[in-house]
Nucleic acid binder design. Structure first.
Length: 489
RNA sequence: GGUCAGUUGGCCGAGUGGCUAGGCAGCGGUCUGCAAAACCGUGUACGGCGGUUCGAAUCCGCCACCGACCUCCA
């Protein structure tokens, strides 16, 4: 097992050697979606990034338990534990039960994830399925004195917590600075401190999703579900906790506080945060209204898009940037990625047809080392891809007779290509569904006629055939003694 | 205002104190009847100004610009 994997840890703000708590087991928890709406592409980026991380850990031989929750209750709109429940609001809007909303968007989320070829997590727990675990945890926090109840709502006492634990450690901020950034409490506010957040929220008479608790009917606050569920399935302390960068300051800060206050244990050893997807330099977000839906991207049905791009092109595009960098969305960038992706896939097909020589003029071992080096350096997929294009060069050069490869190297190259392109990057060759055999046969027949024309130096006819087939989307590539063809979109 | 990032060649996007990232586009060549594809070659890139250093785009300081978080969002 490779011991050289380095992971950037948000807690320490530097890369650290990855050492699992209980090898070969690895526990990873990623904050999943709140299923009251379609996921947009920015959300997808995070889950695709963690899919890459999950796949690489699996490849290294770790026994990974990957937990990604579904938030299906308790996420309020508006600021500071006020405002409507997101599900209730959406349910009203669509005239459905809140749980119908949950079901609808859970299914659509899973479908999108599957289209992007992400592996399903080991466990996908829901907030509503773990109410009692959350209540138990809140009771423990209350018992330890880090929370207080006010009229059926339980708040976490941030200022008291901060006297014992560093509350702002994940964002490197002091409590005083954090307090300055919040607004004054109003007269009727139940909270004692401006940073206090709700662990349990008393329901209103009209609230549909509510549960009985020691503090009366209510529902859990947004942050407690992740603490309760990560503890249940991964233990009080586990290896990796991940999520989007936007969750770092509030959600993850509060998760750490809850776990510390409950069991005196910091929940995760490594915190990983993925950066935002941007459009014209600005964050893609629900509220900004600049969010692309995956479907809009695939079909090209969006004002900012010239045309559609396939899921694998998008996945490849995302892998070309590092997960901790922002990635900007544009037609030009997508088109460039598309060409690169097709080139990579084509090389994969060529690779299968290569025949070995007795000697090798290429260095596959070095190439393989470089691929591992890239991934071991905090999952640097862009560098991995640049190495894979070196593989593409080798494949095409061997195919052209400019390089030689022996049997052993060829086998290694095939295995390397399979491992890094398909197993780890999670790409797949999505060559548009082959048209009917009849159509294929007809194209072959026509091209054979063209070949005859060429042999007879009847270039007028051969060019006419090529032009007309090209116009119909058949790209012709002449080879030494024949031809190849493929369909464009 | 506070915290944290970023500013790289026509576009996207890595990275490093001295040694080619890569993709896309462009240019020249090989191949081809001509193309296409492929291969080979090809780019005074690192926001500005100072400083440290034998040497900085890479470290430090200041400035400018842009962004994220601090209020729901992956």
């Amino acid at each position: 097992m490779d011991k050289n994997l380095q992971i950037y840890n948000t807690l320490t703000r530097k890369k650290e050697v990855f050492e699992p708590l209980n090898p070969p087991f690895v526990g990873i928890y990623v904050c999943g979606p709140t299923v009251y709406n379609d996921v947009h592409l920015g959300n997808c980026r995070t889950f695709i990034s963690f899919d890459l991380i999950y796949r690489y850990l699996l490849h290294l031989g770790y026994k990974v338990r990957y937990v990604r929750n579904i938030t299906d209750a308790g996420h309020l709109e508006g600021d500071r534990d006020e405002g409507d429940d997101k599900f209730a609001k959406k349910a009203k809007l669509e005239q459905l039960e809140p749980m119908e909303i949950v079901q609808k968007y859970t299914l659509s989320f899973r479908e999108v994830m599957s289209v992007f070829n992400t592996l399903p997590p080991s466990i996908e727990p829901t907030a509503t399925g773990h109410i009692s675990e959350q209540i138990e945890m809140i009771k423990e926090i209350l018992k330890n004195g880090y929370a207080y109840e006010k009229n059926g709502t339980v708040y976490f006492d941030v200022e008291k917590y901060n006297t014992v634990f560093p509350y702002g450690q994940l964002t490197n901020r002091k409590l005083e600075e954090l307090i300055e950034g919040t607004r004054e409490l109003s007269g009727q506010d139940e909270k004692k401190g401006r940073l206090d957040f709700a662990l349990w929220i008393k329901s209103k008479p009209e609230t549909l999703m509510k549960w009985p608790s020691p503090w009366g009917w209510g529902f859990p606050g947004w942050h407690i579900e992740c603490s309760a569920m990560s503890t249940k399935y991964l233990g009080e302390k586990f290896d990796i906790h991940g999520g989007g960068m936007d969750l770092q300051a509030t959600h993850h800060t509060n998760e750490i506080a809850q776990s510390q206050a409950c069991s005196n244990t910091a929940p995760a050893k490594y915190w990983m945060h993925t950066n935002m997807l941007t459009v014209n330099g600005t964050r893609m977000s629900k509220s900004a209204g600049n969010g692309f839906l995956p479907r809009e991207l695939f079909t090209g049905n969006h004002p900012l898009l010239d045309r559609g791009y396939s899921p694998m092109v998008v996945r490849f595009f995302m892998a070309q940037s590092h997960y901790r960098s922002t990635l900007d969305f544009s037609n030009e960038a997508l088109q460039a990625a598309e060409k690169g992706f097709f080139k990579l896939m084509k090389a994969g097909e060529t690779l299968e047809k290569l025949s070995p020589s007795t000697e090798s003029t290429v260095n596959i071992t070095e190439l393989e080392d470089n691929c591992y080096k890239a991934m071991n350096d905090d999952f640097n997929s862009p560098i991995l891809i640049s190495n894979l294009f070196e593989a593409v060069r080798i494949i095409n050069s061997v195919n052209d007779g400019n390089e030689k490869i022996n049997k052993e190297d060829l086998e290694n190259l095939k295995s390397l290509f399979q491992i890094f392109v398909f197993d780890i990057l999670g790409l797949k060759n999505e060559k548009s569904g082959e048209s009917s055999n009849l159509a294929n046969d007809l194209i072959d027949m026509i091209l054979n006629l063209r070949l005859d024309a060429k042999k007879n130096k009847d270039f007028a006819t051969s060019d006419k055939i090529r032009n007309e087939l090209t116009a119909k989307g058949v790209v012709i590539k002449d080879t030494k003694d024949g031809f190849e063809w493929e369909l464009t979109d």
